[in-house]
Design a protein around this nucleic acid. Structure first.
Length: 195
DNA sequence: TAGAGGATTGAT
DNA sequence: TCAATCCTCTAC
């Protein structure tokens, strides 16, 4: 069942980031469907330096972060990789969650074709890889997460707090002490985590 | 309008 | 350890 937009519009971004673990991310693009279980997330808040929206700095790129929760924020990193984020909180409060890794659930053949590989090994283990495997790019920026192209659903599985590991986020050394915040959440011992 | 750099990845 | 690769932001 698709998550309602109200799920994303709550205040505590770290809580939502943890609750997204075990949920299913689905795309249906050009009639082709793919899905994966979310196994790794990172929370970002306008209050800390790791975020594009630090100190409420709004630009053309990140303006969707300032909209209401429940929309996709997709941007290009290093000129090569699309990053998929879930915008949370109410309009005007720029919080977001980066989806960093999936465990493939549906459309494995399609993912392998999109990636140009012959085996599914670690095919969605990393934020730049999962967007490519799922067919997500910047044309989906701002898309509502209960649309028919892109959505997140409850799979009926429960991830217990004891199964969740919190650790510092990846690749934000420039954020100073905020880089130490344990806002990266992973499902313990899952083999699809990014490295 | 030029220049620097990035929430990454895969190969060396 | 390093290049790929290009969009975005900042400063001039």
């Amino acid at each position: 069942m698709k998550l309602k937009l109200s799920f994303y519009q709550r205040k505590q971004v770290t809580r939502i980031a943890k609750e997204l673990l075990g949920k299913g991310l689905f795309t249906s693009l050009n009639g082709k469907r793919a899905a994966g279980v979310i196994v790794e997330t990172e929370a970002y808040s306008y209050k800390e330096r790791g975020s594009h929206a630090f100190e409420n700095r709004m630009t053309k790129r990140n303006e969707v972060m300032f909209g209401e929760g429940g929309h996709a924020y997709v941007y290009l990193c290093y000129g090569i990789h699309n990053m998929f984020n879930v915008v949370t909180n109410k309009e005007g409060v720029a919080d977001a969650i980066l989806i960093r890794a999936l465990e493939p659930l549906e459309g494995l053949e399609l993912m392998m074709k999109r990636m140009g590989v012959a085996t599914p090994k670690r095919i969605t283990a990393g934020p730049g890889k999962l967007t490519k495997a799922m067919g997500i790019d910047r044309s989906l920026n701002g898309e509502e997460l209960d649309s028919d192209h892109l959505w997140i659903a409850d799979l009926g599985t429960t991830i217990l707090p004891s199964q969740i590991r919190a650790s510092p986020r990846i690749g934000i050394d420039y954020a100073g002490k905020d880089a130490l915040l344990p806002w990266r959440f992973t499902i313990k011992d899952n083999s699809w985590l990014s490295k």
